[in-house]
Computed example of a mutant assay.
Amino acid sequence: MTANQQGRDVTRRKVVVVGAGAAAAVGLGGAMAANAFAGEQGRKRGGPAPVPEECYLLTSETTEGPYYIDADKLRRDVTEDREGIPLLLRLKVIDNETCRPVRDAAVDIWHCDAVGVYSGYEDMGNGGGGGGPAPTGPPPGGDLSGPPPGGGHQEPTDDTRYLRGTWRTDRQGFVTFKTVFPGWYLGRCVHIHVKVHVNGEWTDAGYEGGTTCHTGQFFFDEESVLASAVVEPYVSNTDDRTTLDEDTIYDGSGTQGGLLKLRYDKRDIAKGVRASLTVGVDPEATNDGTGTPPQPSASASPSASAS
């Protein structure tokens, strides 16, 4: 690990706090987001205790990829002006040894837009579908077979930050984000990146210090991706699409490997999608995603099966 990578992980960042309006639910997915956010607040006011659940295996660690930006905004609604199918992402972070919720953790998510472009890196394009020339190196994400030449992390090329955000887990370990269904780009299946940070300090300025205990990716089943591909603006993404089975990062272990549980109207996915997953982490570990991720366990459990 380079000194720069250590600095990014150990020091962490001061996350920019945005106004409360950024978390407001708007548009087609508004009702879904409002209900989820209200549910979190209800639990904080003394709602019923959650039903006990079986302990989960560690959720698979993956590479960070080159397009992580260590200065995301503290917000639950990361959509900004991006068009796409509304997606409500609800996660529960637990200690995989004790099954207890990991509260006050900082959870980062980031992903490309409907045509495969990452904010902060619009000049990179997506190999055919978005804002710039086709890249000559590894595809955006850079994680088909390890870091791209010159190191794993690439410095941002612009100031855009859509589809990126950080929020804290509540006392039951839940965190919810409002975003859009991701698109795809050459060489990778549809996915969302995630990091979980613990032992830091929440201040008026944001989140500082701590360590990264999990770096992973969330994946979408083929049925949902095929349904999204015929909806605007996804239909304008002309890049060849890598399927879930063809992807070199997804390890095939179902929910343990980051395969999301999805709910949507099979007749009209454009109405919106609810995605959920329990993420089992080791709060004592350091997994910043800049090295070689651990190999998935050969064993399986009911909680790790695909859904």
Rank of each mutant, 00 (worst) to 15 (best):
R103D: 09
Y250L: 07
K178P: 00
R171G: 01
G65R: 11
F174S: 05
N35E: 14
L186S: 06
S119V: 07
A105C: 08
G254L: 05
E246T: 01
V107F: 09
K271M: 07
V273F: 07
Q41N: 11
R171W: 03
Y121L: 08
L88I: 14
M1K: 12
N199S: 15
T79N: 07
G39F: 11
A205G: 08
I85R: 01
D143Q: 12
G120V: 14
T248G: 02
G209P: 03
N287A: 14
N199I: 03
D247H: 04
V196L: 06
Q256T: 12
A114I: 01
T248H: 07
T278H: 02
K92S: 02
S297C: 00
T79Y: 03
V235K: 06
I249Y: 00
T2F: 09
S236C: 02
G210D: 10
R90M: 05
D72G: 11
E201F: 00
A23P: 00
I249D: 07
I94G: 01
G258I: 04
K92A: 02
Y207V: 09
G47F: 10
D113C: 07
L259S: 04
G187L: 05
M32E: 11
S299G: 00
G210W: 10
G206I: 04
D265Q: 11
A71E: 07
V194P: 00
G130L: 04
G187S: 03
V281Y: 10
Q154K: 14
Y185H: 15
E208Q: 11
A134E: 12
L57Q: 13
G254T: 03
V279F: 06
A105Y: 11
R168V: 02
S297A: 11
M124R: 13
V190I: 05
G7T: 13
P50F: 08
R76A: 12
F37I: 15
G151I: 14
A270L: 04
K266Y: 09
N287Q: 14
Q256H: 05
G116I: 09
D288Y: 04
W167A: 15
S307A: 13
V107W: 05
V281H: 09
F218R: 02
P302Y: 13
R45E: 13
A22N: 12
P52A: 14
Y56A: 05
S228E: 01
L262E: 08
E155V: 15
S305R: 13
G210V: 11
S305D: 07
D158M: 09
H214P: 00
G254F: 06
R12G: 15
K261P: 00
G84D: 10
S297H: 01
T157I: 09
T211D: 09
S299E: 06
A23K: 12
F181D: 01
H111M: 08
T203Y: 01
I85A: 02
D9K: 03
S297D: 06
H214Q: 13
N126C: 14
G280N: 05
Q172Y: 13
G257C: 03
P138G: 10
P135K: 08
A24D: 13
T278A: 05
G125S: 11
K44E: 15
T79L: 06
P149S: 15
S228G: 02
F37K: 14
M32Q: 13
R164P: 00
T176I: 12
N35Q: 13
G142Y: 10
Q217A: 15
P147G: 14
D247I: 04
F181G: 03
P52I: 09
A114F: 04
G258C: 10
